[in-house]
Design a protein around this nucleic acid. Structure first.
Length: 308
DNA sequence: TTGTGTTTTATTGCCTCC
DNA sequence: GGAGGCAATAAAACACAA
């Protein structure tokens, strides 16, 4: 035996016959296109599926060896016969009825217990191995389809998320624009009233948040407005001053480590650079280089190459 | 009719489980 | 160690356009 699987040489026993004539009937395709049908021995099984065009294959037979090892070891004859039979071997498709029957059975249970296999084989007039193979192939097809479905649903989900994200980006841009206009307006009014310039005034229209230090892994952000609130045990909205502008931030205290809490109470909070991605820094056309993926479980390039 | 792409049936080798 | 599952693959059967 060349392979790892040891096939039993009980070839046609499953189909209810076990002799040379049946082997020849099933394999021998001399000239007619349908020799099997004409040579099939009727009445060997009560199954309504018997007598079909189904190929009666040599279950368990290693094709590189003799099909006829039981016949007194006449190796020469065996080799000749094998060559002849092998040359004329044809695959037969299952009939529509057989396939329907198998499909129904597969729908009920896609795994095949030995008893069920034997019963199906009996009912269909097939060899149990044929039934097993059919189930195996069917499972493979099912798996492929399932993968396609999963892919489609993931893609739909991704598209939807991306649309949401794009909308958020637009909205944010709009709000930023609004902030710029309002700040300018405020400055103008202040000047007209002769008020001194606000300390942050310069950061308004010309210098919006994002011009902070680039490429830092984390930033030490001084927490100004929140300090008093926090020390009084009220964890209200924290205004983070960074890069000349302010971000509203609502840290969840339960998520803070002791270090972070310490820093927070000191007025300093370490923020990984991904916590507040600067919008203009996000490249939608390329996979993000860093580890921050805004909620997407993106471990590697594979997802992005898939997604784009 | 023929070339080509797809589907179906079957084999092989490897792996896991009992 | 045998049985059975799966992935990869071969090859026959089939569908279909040119």
């Amino acid at each position: 035996m060349a392979g790892g699987r040891v096939y039993r040489s009980n070839t046609s026993a499953d189909a209810g016959s076990n002799n040379l004539s049946v082997l020849l009937q099933s394999r021998w395709v001399p000239s007619s296109s349908e020799p099997l049908d004409t040579l099939f021995i009727p009445g060997s099984s009560p199954s309504p599926f018997l007598g079909t065009r189904s190929m009666v294959s040599f279950e368990g037979v290693d094709r590189r060896r003799s099909y006829f090892r039981t016949f007194d070891g006449e190796e020469k004859v065996e080799e000749d016969m094998e060559e002849y039979l092998h040359r004329s071997e044809k695959k037969r498709r299952l009939t529509v009825d057989q396939v329907q029957f198998l499909e129904k059975s597969f729908e009920a249970e896609n795994k095949l217990e030995p008893d069920r296999k034997v019963q199906l084989a009996k009912d269909l007039g097939l060899q149990s191995r044929q039934v097993a193979i059919w189930f195996q192939n069917r499972r493979a097809r099912w798996k492929t389809k399932q993968l396609e479905k999963d892919y489609d649903s993931m893609q739909a989900s991704y598209n939807s998320l991306k649309a949401d994200y794009d909308n958020l980006v637009k909205e944010t841009d709009k709000l930023k624009e609004e902030v710029v206009q309002l700040t300018d307006k405020l400055l103008l009014e202040g000047k007209e009233k002769g008020e001194p310039e606000l300390p942050d005034a310069k950061t308004s229209s010309q210098e919006l948040p994002s011009e902070a230090a680039e490429g830092e892994e984390s930033k030490v952000v001084p927490v100004v407005s929140a300090k008093s609130d926090y020390t009084e045990g009220v964890h209200s909205s924290v205004l983070l001053e960074g890069a000349g502008s302010t971000y509203p931030f609502e840290p969840d205290q339960s998520d803070l480590s002791q270090d972070e809490e310490d820093n927070l109470s000191k007025g300093l909070l370490h923020l990984p650079s991904c916590v507040f991605p600067k919008l203009q820094d996000i490249d939608y056309s390329d996979p993000p280089a860093g580890s921050c993926n805004f909620g997407f479980p993106l471990d590697d390039h594979a997802f992005w190459s898939w997604a784009y």
